[in-house]
Amino acid sequence: MTRQERRRDFNLGLGVAAFGAALVLLIIPQGVVVPKGVRSAVLSPSFWPYAIAGFLLLGGILLAVQSRLASAGAPDVEGDEGEEERQAEPWLRLAASVVLLSLYYLAVQPLGMVVASMLAVLAFGTLAGATRRPIWLVVTALVLPLLLYGFFYEVASLPVPTGRWIHFP
């Protein structure tokens, strides 16, 4: 295990433990409605969430301790020093993907699922590196959403959103 991986696990453990604590202190009291007159604590709607929260809290602490102990006991395997620098571009690409996912979701209502999907295939295909096969990408973008529309709308009779401006038969 490299130093970066141990650091990652330590941070993950702390994060999970903090989430477990937030569940116990804030999220469960706010999010779970416990009716009056619950006969037994184990029958309460909040029993199971509290049990899971405790499990996450404990698991997070154990993971953090385990990674710290591993740091103390194991020889220090160096990670790639240039790795963080090279990872900057993937994070930008991830951010672009998340933005595209959000736009895809938002575009379904006004444009309809078919047109939104055509644009999404083009955008994600470009981001995923399909620019070397532009014809295949365009053909996929045009044909696949229409085929899916035909199957879901015409065969399975599901009301696929058709959008405000464009209507398919």
């Binding site: 993907s97 995923a128 399909a130």
Partner: peptide, 8 residues
């Protein structure tokens, strides 16, 4: 993952 890699 494919989008973050960007290779084909």
């Amino acid at each position: 993952l494919q989008c973050t890699r960007g290779d084909d």
